[in-house]
Structure formats: C-alpha cells, structure tokens
Nucleic acid binder design. Structure first.
Length: 507
RNA sequence: GGCCCGUUCGUCUAUCGGCUAGGACAUCUCCCUUUCACGGAGGAAAGACGGGUUCGAUUCCCGUACGGGCUACCA
C-alpha cells in the first residue's frame, strides 16, 4: 500500500549552493532517512544558457561536506539513471508529443519578438504583464489558431517552436500541501507555460513531473517560490500519470535576509559580511568569489544544526541536535509556514556550541590547515590537541583558533608592556628573576608553577594580583588567553624564560 | 496590477480555546574568574488591526493592513 519513501533534491547547476538550497537538501534527507527511504539528487541542467560546468561537482562536494550524501545521483549511480536531465532529453519530448496529441498542449510558433510585441500590445495599467493565457493564445501563432496544414507545413519546414500547456478555461485546481494544507488556484489565472523549449529541452515544469514519476518520487519538497506554478504541475500529473500517483508536495518557507525583507541572496552576504554559500564558490564566468561557511570556520555539524532550526523545531527547548537525533525527531508537521530571517549571530552561536562539545581531535587537522595558510606551521600532535582543548571555549569559529593559540608556538610579536609599565618596579624585576632561578627545584607543570609563584610572592611580600597580569602579558602579549600557568607548562621552561627575560628588558 | 502564501519579544521560536504568553540568540546588570572567555543568576523585550464564534480567544472564522513569492523558451 504505502509506497517506499523516495525524495529528491533537484538543483540546477548554475552557481554555488546557498543556505536555502542546503536546507531543502537537509529536510529531504531527514525525511527520507526517518522513513527508511531514499534520497535522490537529480541535476536539472535543462537551461543551456545558465549552465556552469563546475557547479555540479561543487554541489556534490557541499553535500559531502554536510554529510548529506544522496543514495542515487549522477555520480553515485542508481536504478533510475541517468540523473542528469540533459541526458534524458528524448524522454521529455515523447511526453510533450503525447500531450499535444491529447489536446492538452499545443505547438506555438511565436518568435521572441512576437511575444514581446504581444506583451507591449496588451499591456495596460491594470495588467502590466500580459500572460500567454487562454485568451491571448487565440490571437497568437500556434496550432490552436493555425490550420492543420499550416502547422504541418511549419513543422516540416523546421520552424522553431515550443510546446505549451493548454490551461483549462474554467477549472479549480487544488491540492493539499503537507505544510500549508489546502491550496487552490483558478486555471484561468495561470498562463500556458512552455513545456518544451525551442532547443528541444524541457522546461522545469515538464521535467519535474516526468522525472518525479519515472524516478518514483513519493514526496516532493521545494521552496515556496514554486507554489504559483504548482497548478501547472498538478495538471501535468493529471494528464500524464494520474493524480493518484502524484507525490505529496511540501513547499518549504523561504530564508529571508536579516535586514528588511525578501529572499536571502548572495548579495546580502557580501553586503552584510557573512557567508551565504556552504563552501567557497568562484564563478568561472565572472571570477567573482564568495566565501562559504566551511572556509569561514564552521563545523558541518553546526551548519546543519543551524539550518535545521531555521524553520523547524521539535517542540521542546532543545536547540542542539546531531544528525542522527535530527533524523529521529524530524517531522514535516513541525516545519513552519512562514519565512525566517537569517541571523548570523545565532549561526555563530551554534558553531561555538559545536566547537565546545566536539573533541578537538575531530577538527585539529582543519585548524592546522588554517594555521598553515597564515604561515604558521605546526605539527598535528598531542601537544596541539592539548592547546586547542585549552582554548576552544574562546573560539566561535575554527578560524579563531589562530589568534587564540598562536602564542603557544611563537613568541608574541608585540608585547603590551604599556599596560603594566605604570606599576612596574625593581622589586618585580627581582621577583621574576628569582622565580626563574628557582625552577630547578620545581616540577614543570601548571599546578607546581602556580604554587612556587605564589609562595615566592608571599616571601617577597608582593600581592599575587600585582604579578599575574605582568606574567600574562609577558607570556602572551596581551590580556587574553587561558590560565597563565597552563601556558607556561605547554610552551616549556626555556621558552617561558626567554619571554620573561625579553619582556623585562623593556620594563 | 493580478494570483498565491504568510503575520507571537530586535531575531529564531513554544503555545495545538483557559498563561503571570515559555525558551534561545543579541542586549543590559550582577556573580564566578588575580586576563579574556566558558559558566551561573537576574532585567528589559511580543501576540498587526477590526469584526465575529465562544463562558473564555494569541489560538477558530471573516475582513483590513502589512510583508513576501510568482507573474521568462530560468530554475
């Protein structure tokens, strides 16, 4: 009875994968996994003009980074191959012909210029964008208005044509959206969408329906921006495969820009200084670069977690979820109807939480790479892990580790001696020199160092508080970082001595 | 303009007719911390408006307003 759950994400390879796209993938993925179903990735490359060659690989890389791998796709293979629409061209033509024969679609020979003329001619104040609809089609050049002989003549003469759906004049088209409930449209208000383009490629409208059927998709999720064209798809299902076989639709709410309103776009990221794409993306045509969440220092777990919460919650106060937990808890009933403004501050909070709860061994290699890119070469060893563990509470992004731990590897370039100079005196110089001299009898670890430091302070009758800040500044260069004695322990006796002696010279 | 969708703190949201409207981010105050964080405690902060339905509406219905999406041989 119940069909196996099969869902699909169908991006067009025209550019980088942004937030909204990844969230659509996520909801698809969670739904599929929760119901023991399959997640299919289908490449909708039917637009030759907007096609960007590198975009397809980029999409796969993004999904891999996010841990949302498809079960079937152009590179994973599967029983319904090919998964690239450009490779299925012939299939769509056959269905388009079927629709024409049944009188549910027709050939249209209008040139782009003629279409433009039509729009100009019928444009009025009340109707600024005239549609190719049930009225207008009677006045255009198509197989509805032309004689059969003329149509045949044009066809055999190789005239350029498209196939358009013939919208019923007076029909109520309704369906139940899993998120929005009943949605109704009137057929007269929907235009005769092109199904097959002049180059023989299908438009999205024909391709989704045909492929969703052929690939046995049970539930179809997409962004809310598709809602207005749903009636076209409903009709196509009715004509071609039967409404009873149609997948259940779910139109997901949009992700909005943080300021003002409107769909979030990559421009907003540039403008407001936060990533919009999952990973770095360089447009091969314009060489324009956009930074991704990955390169900004996000953990994929945090990115996915944050996205999941942008439009869904499990009804409790819990906000931190791992992938497995999301699969277990996810339900479409709890996906919101309204769009959500993207909040980069909250996104960073998610990342901070994930950095805190994740063992550093899981991401130390990423940090090492980041260090390298900034000219700091360190070994990914036990010491590194100790250091990262010590500073991770202070790091919101993976890229924060650099500033927070650089001083463990190299002496600070500049030491903020000014902030301790005022209260400096010879007693303190003497204190530090004697402390250094006494190390021979001290075991080199944080606790022992702290004990010896405090003991000497008492002996010298100097308040410990007067000495802590100087020690910190001499060691790390400024007022930040983890416990000073932990730092000493990790940078070692020799280095600690060097830094102290160097700094004292300037005091 | 038309069609469709939406509307709880600044932001993300809980509430499935009975609440002093809860949580989180951000913000402010305090505590902890001999640095900066982490952490802890607390404060300020919301139901677009107008009608119904009901003993009772944030919750259900209808209008209005506002916001958004779509309106291509793009997806």
């Amino acid at each position: 009875m119940n069909k196996k759950v099969r869902v699909r994400f169908a991006p067009s390879p025209t550019g980088g994968l942004h937030l909204g796209g990844v969230r659509t993938v996520l909801y698809n993925y969670l739904f599929a996994k929760k119901h023991g179903g399959d997640f299919i990735l289908r490449i909708e490359d039917t637009d030759q003009n907007r096609y960007v060659a590198s975009a397809e690989q980029y999409i796969f890389d993004c999904l891999q980074w996010c841990g949302l791998e498809p079960d079937e796709s152009a590179i994973h293979g599967g029983p319904f191959a090919p998964y690239r629409q450009s490779e299925r061209k012939a299939i769509y033509q056959q269905y388009a012909e079927q629709l024409v024969k049944a009188g549910q679609a027709y050939y249209a020979f209008d040139t782009p210029e003629e279409l433009e003329d039509m729009r100009q001619q019928f444009k009025t104040h009340d109707n600024p964008t005239p549609q190719y609809n049930y009225e207008i089609r009677e006045r255009m050049k198509n197989s509805l208005t032309l004689s059969e002989e003329e149509v045949q003549r044009l066809l055999s003469a190789g005239s350029s044509y498209v196939v358009r759906i013939k919208m019923p004049v007076n029909e109520e088209i309704r369906f139940t959206d899993m998120i929005r409930g009943e949605v109704a449209f009137h057929s007269a208000l929907v235009d005769d969408k092109v199904l097959l383009k002049a180059d023989g490629m299908p438009t999205y409208h024909l391709a989704v329906v045909v492929d969703d059927h052929l690939m046995q998709i049970s539930h179809a999720f997409r962004g809310e921006e598709w809602l207005p064209s749903a009636p076209v798809h409903i009709l196509l299902w009715k004509y071609l495969f039967g409404l009873e076989n149609m997948p259940q639709w779910a139109h997901l709410p949009l992700i909005l820009k943080p300021d003002g309103n409107g769909k979030l776009s990559k421009r907003d990221g540039d403008r407001l200084g936060f990533p919009v794409f999952a990973m770095d993306w360089t447009d091969p045509k314009t060489a324009e670069k956009a930074t991704g969440f990955r390169e900004r220092g996000f953990l994929p777990e945090a990115f996915v977690n944050m996205l999941a919460m942008l439009g869904w919650n499990d009804g409790t106060d819990q906000e931190i979820f791992g992938k497995e937990e999301l699969i277990e808890r996810f339900s479409l009933e709890r996906v919101h109807k309204s769009g959500a403004k993207f909040d980069y501050e909250k996104a960073k909070w998610f990342n901070h939480e994930w950095i805190k709860k994740t063992s550093v061994s899981r991401f130390s290699s990423l940090v090492v790479k980041d260090f390298e890119s900034r000219g700091l070469n360190v070994a990914n060893d036990q010491r590194l892990e100790k250091i990262l563990e010590l500073v991770k509470d202070r790091c919101t992004l993976l890229t924060d580790f650099y500033d927070q731990s650089k001083f463990f590897f190299v002496a600070p370039e500049s030491v903020d001696v000014d902030s301790i100079k005022g209260k400096w005196n010879d007693d303190k110089t003497t204190f530090f020199k004697e402390w250094i001299a006494g190390w021979n009898n001290v075991e080199w670890n944080a606790a022992a160092l702290e004990a010896s430091f405090k003991e000497l302070a008492v002996t010298k009758n100097i308040k410990v508080g007067e000495l802590m800040l100087p020690l910190r500044i001499m060691l790390v260069g400024g007022k930040f970082g983890p416990g000073v004695f932990n730092i000493s322990e990790l940078i070692g006796k020799e280095e600690t001595e060097n830094r102290l002696k160097t700094a004292i010279q300037f005091l």
